[in-house]
Structure formats: structure tokens, C-alpha cells
Write a protein that binds this DNA or RNA. Structure first.
Length: 248
DNA sequence: CGTACTGTTCGGGA
DNA sequence: GTCCCGAACAGTAC
């Protein structure tokens, strides 16, 4: 489940290679010429939302695990290698992921004020952007990576449940205070999620995502595709309030 | 064995 | 331009 917190966790795991030289680059990634990487010193690792960035002196490699991506540190998986980097003390290997070469300045490509895991995250800006499309369902809006980068479908379901907001609520009908609490919850849950990943207990902490029963009301959860994106939503009809515009 | 799914990009058409 | 839809990608679980 590659959401923002997993990318930060991966960064923590990979940081052992910062400062080291790429001895060998392998793999089938189309847009990443292996000869560009060989001999380069890894200067920094960054993340942006669900993206993972290896930074070198004059370019960066962006990796997105998409739905099915996998990685292995100091081991290999039995499948086609997309991008493998061998360093002085070990190796990191990526599979079934999207890899891109970035030659522009990262500040031209990424706006860290939209990344919920970044210290630069700006909740006022997120609220402002949410208001630009008031007709959208909140379940779609919350997955918008240009507003809340790093939030995926799991976090989406959990924050809506915690804030007791029905996923099919319309953004424009949700009171400002509730919207602000929801944005704050996205950040809070993402960081809690990171601590659970570090402990290896993440699965135990989901309250509704891929669950069958509401932990508050002990009634069956609803499961269905919501919004224009038709992504899976798990929610409780009783305790999650549906905000719709007043029809007069 | 068929289907669903943690996500995004691209192109075509309205 | 902008919005919206479907296709494509690809691994695993049920």
C-alpha cells in the first residue's frame, strides 16, 4: 500500500546509502539510462507524496510504486528488475514501478507545501484549493494529490471515519470548521501511520478500511465505489454524517 | 480461474 | 482551454 507514510519509511530504510557512489545500475526502466547513474554520488533522498526521489548532483530519479510496486533492500525479488542500484555497502532494488529522470530543479517540479508529510505543509493552502471545486465529493477531493499529496485510499477512508464525515458529502456543503479538522486529521493520521509502519503494526490500526463492522456502532459497514473516481469507500451510515447542499 | 484493488498518466472527444 | 472517460500498466489475494 504505497501511501505517503510508506514512502517516508522507505526513505528511512534507504538513507544508509546517502553519500555513497553508485557502483552499478541495472534494470529495465525505460526513462532512466543506467550509464547516467554509474559513478554518481547519492547526495540526498527526498519524498514527495507517494513519490520517492534519489538526488544526485545534477539530476534526480523519481520512483512511484503505483498500485503494485515492490522494493527490496540488500535482497532481490524473483521478478523483472525495474531499477537496481548497487552501492558500496549494499543494494536497493525496485520492481513494477514507474521511474523517471528529472533534470529540472526539484523546486520547479514539486511544491512541498502540499505534501502532508512535509514540514512545509500548508493547511490554509489545502483548504483554499478544496474550495475551488465545491461540487466535488469529499472522497474524490481528499485523494487529489495536488491538494493533499501522499493521501491514498486507505488514509482517505480512515480520516473520513475519524471525522465522522460520509465519503459522498459535497465539499461545498461541509462546514469550514469540519473541513479544517479533516485536513488536520490527514496530517495526524499520516504520521501515526508512519509510527505503526515502523512497529510493523499498521494493519491492526485500520478502523474501517477493508473492515466489516463499525467499531463505534457495531453495525455492518457500507462498502461501495464513491465519487467520479469510483474508488472503494468503507463507511458507517449511522455515525458518518452526509453533508449535502440545502435544497430550497 | 476470474475479479478486485492500495495509483497515475495519457489521449480522445465533448 | 477544460472536463471527463476509458485504456494501459502489473502483482497479489481471494
Amino acid at each position: 500500500m504505497p501511501e505517503g507514510p510508506q514512502m517516508v519509511f522507505l526513505k528511512e530504510q534507504a538513507e544508509q546509502f546517502v553519500g555513497q557512489t553508485v557502483l552499478l545500475a541495472e534494470g529495465s526502466a525505460k526513462h532512466v539510462p543506467n550509464n547516467r547513474l554509474q559513478g554518481q554520488v547519492l547526495t540526498e533522498i527526498k519524498t514527495y507524496g507517494k513519490e520517492f526521489l534519489f538526488c544526485f548532483s545534477s539530476f534526480a530519479i523519481c520512483i512511484h510504486l503505483m498500485l503494485f510496486g515492490k522494493y527490496a533492500i540488500n535482497s532481490r525479488l524473483d521478478r523483472e528488475l525495474r531499477l537496481g542500484l548497487e552501492f558500496e555497502t549494499g543494494e536497493i532494488n525496485f520492481y513494477a514501478c514507474d521511474c523517471r529522470l528529472i533534470e529540472k530543479e526539484l523546486s520547479e517540479v514539486y511544491d512541498w507545501s502540499t505534501d502532508v508529510m512535509s514540514t512545509l505543509f500548508d493547511k490554509a493552502k489545502a483548504l483554499e484549493k478544496l474550495h475551488t471545486k465545491p461540487e466535488r465529493q469529499i472522497s474524490d477531493a481528499i485523494l487529489d494529490q495536488s491538494i493533499l499529496a501522499g493521501v491514498g485510499n486507505g488514509i482517505k477512508n480512515e480520516v473520513l471515519y475519524r471525522r465522522q464525515i460520509h465519503p459522498e458529502s459535497m465539499v461545498g456543503a461541509i462546514p469550514e470548521v469540519e473541513l479544517l479538522k479533516l485536513v488536520n486529521e490527514c496530517v495526524k493520521l499520516s504520521f501515526e501511520y508512519l509510527t505503526w509502519i515502523r512497529e510493523g503494526t499498521a494493519k491492526q490500526h485500520w478502523q474501517v478500511y477493508q473492515k466489516k463492522e463499525c467499531p463505534r456502532d457495531f453495525i455492518p459497514l457500507q462498502k461501495g465505489k464513491t465519487g467520479k473516481q469510483l474508488r472503494s469507500s468503507y463507511y458507517c451510515d449511522r455515525c458518518q454524517r452526509l453533508f449535502l447542499p440545502d435544497v430550497l
